[in-house]
Design a protein around this nucleic acid. Structure first.
Lengths: 328, 328
DNA sequence: TCCCTTTCCCTAAACGTTTCATTTTGATTC
DNA sequence: GAATCAAAATGAAACGTTTAGGGAAAGGGA
C-alpha cells in the first residue's frame, strides 16, 4: 500500500536526464530546451511525482508557509478574515498556520517564536495591543499588522474615525439630540478613533448625553447599565456590535423599546448583526478587502519590495437596519 | 541587523563537541553523559540556538504540522472547533494548517493534496459530504474525520439522534401536540440522524404536524415559509440554529408570537443562539471536547497506535432558553 | 581551420538536520 | 600490564531538494 514516495531523482533517472535538469524543468528555471522540459514534466506526471516541500525548504530557506496570529478566534471578525487570508494565500501557493493567542501577550510572544522556528516566510498579525515590540523575537521577518497599529510595521486598517463620524452624523440627521456613546476598551487605538470621532461630532451638535466604557462583550458594566436606565439618551452609538447586542438585551429587559425609545448603532457588522431583533444598524468594515490586502502586502514584501511603515486605510460604510431607522 | 542564524554546527563547535553529540543533547536521545548534555544545552541557550524545523523535517520525514480541513469557516461551528484544535495541537508541539474548501469537493481534494505535499503528519477533516474517497490522494496519511461519517476513518461525532430525541421529548413534555420539523439538507448523515430521531419520537406521540427541508441557512424555502404560515404546529424543531433563526425571523414578520404561538428549538448552540430574541432553546454539542478528542486521536495515530475505524460519539444536551420554555 | 558565442545539460556542493556504525575513553577484572 | 566491556563521543552518510559553475555540442563569422 504505502509505496515509496517518488523523488526527483526517480524522475530524472526515468527521464534520462540529470537531477539538475529535472529540477530546472519542474521549477521552470534555468535554461532548458522546450523538448526536455516537456519530456521531464510528462515523466513526472506519469510517475505521480510530488515535490517534497520540506526538503525544498531546507535548501532554499523558504517554506512557502505564512502565519496568521489572532488574539481570539471567537472574535466575530475572525472567520471572514481567516477565510480571505487562507484563500488568498493559497491562490499564491502559500499555506497558512493559524494560531490563537487567547488574548495573552505571553502566549502571543511564544506563538510568534514558534512560527519563526517553523520557518514561516512571513506573518499576518492581529495583535492584542497596539504598542508592542517583538523585533527581538521576530528579527527581520516580514510582518503585516492588521486592525491594530504597531510602529515599524505595515498596518492594514479601516477608517475607524470615519466610521464613528458616519454613525454620529446619521443619528444626528435622524433628529436625535441626546445621544450616548458606549465605547469599548479605550486602550485600543481603533476604539479611541471610532469613539473619539463620534463624540466630537456629537459634541459639536451639543447632543452628547453620556459617554461610558465597556469591555468587548455583551455583558454590561454597572456604569453602562445605569446610563441606559437613566434614559438620558434617545440613541446610542456602541463601539462594537457585541456591546450593541448587550445594550439591546438590557434595554429589552427594562422595557425600553428599540428603536422607538432608544436607537442603537453598532460597529463591525458582525455576521449576526443582521439577525438580531431588531436587526442592528451598524458600521461595516471591508474585512475581505483588508485580509486580501494584508496577504498581498506580505507577499510583496516577500518579493523584496520595501515599502515599510506604510499604513493602508480602508473606507467603511453604514448599514441601515432596524435598530436605528433613517428618520425618527 | 540580520545576524546569521545560529546552526547546530555553531553550537557544537562552541561547546567543543561533535555535531552528533550536539544533536543528541538537544533531542535528548542517544547516549550522552549528563555533564555534556547539560553543557551543550547551556551553550545552545547562550547562543540563542533555535532548531531549523524545515531541515529537521527533511531528514526525519515528519514536519510536526497537521492540517485542519473545513468546508466553510463561516460555519458557526468553526471558531470554537478551530480554537480547540489549534490549542491542543500546539500544546503537543504541533502547528496547524487551516484550510477552507468553500464547500466545493474539487477544492477539497486539491486542498488535501496540497497538505500532503507540505508533508503534514496528519489531518483533521471536516468533510463536505459523508461518503467520500480520498485514499487515492491521501495514501496512508493518518486522518481523523470530525462531525461527518467517512468509511475507513476514525470519526468523531456527537450523538445527533439523542439530540433529536431530546428536543422532541422536551416539546412533547411541554404539552405540544402539533409539532413541525424543519430539517436541514437530508443528504448529510448527521441531519438524517437528528431529524429522523425527532420525527420518530413525535410520530410515536402522533403529534407530527409537518416535516420539511431547508438549506443550512437563514433563508427559508417556499415550502418552509408556507408550513409556518399554515400555523399547523405550535412548536417546531429545526435541524440547525441557523434555520431556527430564519424561522423566528419569518414568524415575527407574520406576527406569530414566539414562544407563545410557536415554540422553537434549534440544534448546535451556535454562539449567537444565546443572544437571539427570544434567546434560542437548542441542543448543545460538546464542540471543545470533540475537537480535543480529534487531535488526541490523531496524535495517538501518529504514535503508531492503530485503532482504525473507531467511531467516538459524544453526548449532547438541551439548553433551555426563551424560544421554547419548559412548560406551556 | 580556428575561435567565439550561445544553448543546453551535467557534476557536485550545499541546506541543517538525524542517526548508523564506529572509535575512543576510562573503569574493571584477571 | 594486558584484556574486556559498557558508556560516551564521533565521523560521515543520508534526507530531497536547489543552484553555481563548468563543459560539450552546435552554430556562425573570420
Amino acid at each position: 500500500m504505502a509505496r515509496k514516495r517518488i523523488t526527483l531523482k526517480d524522475v530524472a533517472k526515468s527521464a534520462g536526464v540529470s537531477l539538475a535538469s529535472a529540477s530546472y524543468a519542474i521549477n521552470k528555471t534555468g535554461s532548458l530546451s522546450e523538448d526536455t522540459r516537456a519530456h521531464v514534466l510528462k515523466v513526472a506526471e506519469e510517475l505521480g511525482y510530488r515535490q517534497n516541500l520540506a526538503a525544498r525548504a531546507a535548501r532554499t530557506g523558504r517554506t512557502g508557509a505564512i502565519g496568521f496570529v489572532v488574539p481570539d478566534m471567537t472574535n466575530p471578525f475572525f472567520p471572514s478574515l481567516a477565510q480571505s487570508i487562507v484563500q488568498r494565500a493559497r491562490q499564491n501557493g502559500y499555506s497558512v498556520f493559524v494560531t490563537d493567542t487567547e488574548g495573552d501577550q505571553a502566549q502571543e510572544e511564544e506563538v510568534i517564536r514558534q512560527l519563526v522556528d517553523r520557518g514561516v516566510d512571513g506573518i499576518v498579525w492581529f495583535p492584542i495591543k497596539d504598542e508592542n515590540s517583538i523585533e527581538s523575537i521576530a528579527g527581520d521577518l516580514p510582518i503585516i499588522v492588521i486592525d491594530r497599529t504597531v510602529n515599524g510595521f505595515e498596518c492594514i486598517q479601516a477608517d475607524y474615525a470615519q466610521g464613528g463620524q458616519l454613525a454620529a452624523n446619521y443619528l444626528l440627521a435622524s433628529g436625535h439630540d441626546r445621544i450616548g456613546v458606549i465605547a469599548g476598551p479605550m486602550d485600543v487605538r481603533s476604539m479611541r478613533e471610532r469613539c473619539g470621532a463620534a463624540i466630537e461630532a456629537i459634541n459639536r451638535a451639543s447632543a452628547l448625553a453620556y459617554s461610558v466604557e465597556n469591555a468587548f462583550s455583551t455583558e454590561l458594566s454597572g456604569d453602562v447599565a445605569s446610563a441606559i436606565e437613566s434614559r438620558a439618551a434617545t440613541a446610542v452609538f456602541c463601539g462594537s456590535d457585541l456591546i450593541a447586542v448587550g445594550v439591546m438585551g438590557h434595554a429589552r429587559k427594562l422595557g425600553i423599546a428599540i428603536p422607538d425609545e432608544l436607537a442603537v448603532v453598532g460597529f463591525d457588522d458582525i455576521p449576526w448583526a443582521e439577525y438580531c431583533t431588531p436587526a442592528l444598524t451598524t458600521i461595516e468594515l471591508p474585512v475581505d478587502e483588508m485580509a486580501s490586502e494584508a496577504v498581498d502586502a506580505l507577499l510583496r514584501k516577500l518579493d523584496g519590495e520595501n515599502e515599510s511603515n506604510r499604513r493602508v486605510v480602508f473606507g467603511v460604510c453604514l448599514i441601515e437596519r432596524e435598530s436605528a431607522p433613517p428618520r425618527k
